[in-house]
């Protein structure tokens, strides 16, 4: 029984699922992290427009998470 079910699972399909999870979950993680930084950065910019550059940079810092996810996905493929 168990053997039969396993045989149905296609290896390349599992890889695709894994790659999808890697990008999707890290994307959510970056989103959560950036949301807080972004709203704080907008708040700071409302006070002082010169902070635009720093705000932008701080906001994209968690972007690394999803980049790593993307790299992992590429490696799985």
């Amino acid at each position: 029984m168990v053997g039969e079910e396993l045989a149905v699972m296609d290896a390349s399909g599992l890889r695709a699922i894994g790659a999808g999870l890697a990008v999707g979950l890290t994307g959510i993680a970056s989103g959560i992290a950036e949301k807080d930084i972004g709203s704080a950065a907008i708040g700071a910019m409302a006070e002082n427009e010169a902070l635009f550059g720093k705000g932008l940079i701080l906001t994209v810092i968690p972007e690394t998470i999803v980049i790593f996810g993307l790299v992992v996905a590429l490696l799985i493929k």
């Binding site: 972007e63 690394t64 980049i67 790593f68 993307l70 790299v71 590429l74």
Partner: peptide
Amino acid sequence: LSNSLSYTRIIAVGLS
């Protein structure tokens, strides 16, 4: 390690 891996975005963003 994490900083130099961060440069892999050059290929990752390019591929996307």
